[in-house]
Design a binder for these strands. Sequence first.
DNA 1: ATATCATTTAGAGTATACTCTAAGTCAAGT
DNA 2: ACTTGACTTAGAGTATACTCTAAATGATAT
Lengths: 127, 127
Amino acid sequence: MTIAEVSKEYNLTPDTIRYYEKEGLIPRVPRNKSGIRDFDENSCRWIEFIKCMRNAGLSIEVLSKYVKLMGEGPKTASERKKLLEDQRDILLKKQKDINETIDRINHKIQIYDDIVKGKREDYILEP
Amino acid sequence: MTIAEVSKEYNLTPDTIRYYEKEGLIPRVPRNKSGIRDFDENSCRWIEFIKCMRNAGLSIEVLSKYVKLMGEGPKTASERKKLLEDQRDILLKKQKDINETIDRINHKIQIYDDIVKGKREDYILEP
DNA sequence: ATATCATTTAGAGTATACTCTAAGTCAAGT
DNA sequence: ACTTGACTTAGAGTATACTCTAAATGATAT
């Protein structure tokens, strides 16, 4: 698979994919004789995995560290576990923050709905 | 309330608070005769609100827009409602992404736990 | 009166994560 | 042979959100 195909498949620009490889977010992608990347299934799985993690907000630095540990073999398993636990805890916190914010926003939407329908007066400058 | 007190109360640096005011994330804070900010209850409520929104990931640009609309009075109520609905939809998507990622991470943690306990072999370079 | 300390501003600097540019290589089509 | 078009690289540029610096001002303590 060429970088253009992978780009389309995962909706990431070729630049981003190359950047991810350079930063070590995905292990070295196989190349053909002229040095052009030829993504195999494993590379694609990595890209999908990294995209998922990035969508949730994990940093380039953390993901790079994780891939590095993967490359160092079984002896890093417990360190990888710790890293994932830390990131999960951060995501659980983020989940809480987002839930709280959604609730507040929904409450405000309700108020604006009332205002728009003339059932309520608008606020002044209060949040 | 001085900026130092507000900084402590909401765990934001004075620089960040000044930056938020400059970018219009909070309406103009009252000043004393020598030009020093003297945060009243309304300013504090705004800061708490903005902090909550920023924690959930709403951008400076969007929040600045929202505060600007607030300042323009009741006629912008429906525009504000639309803005909040858009942001809520983004947060709902983010929530989904995070849930998916937490599930995947938990699954991996389980696998690493087995590996660390010698119940399973480590993977090679698969995500 | 003077030193100390918090505050103010404008504007420069930093971190993160891309995104673009320029110059070059290579395979395929005409 | 030559153009086209996709790919390559290093490195510069951009967007976002702070964070720091420097110089000035004002209130308080000695």
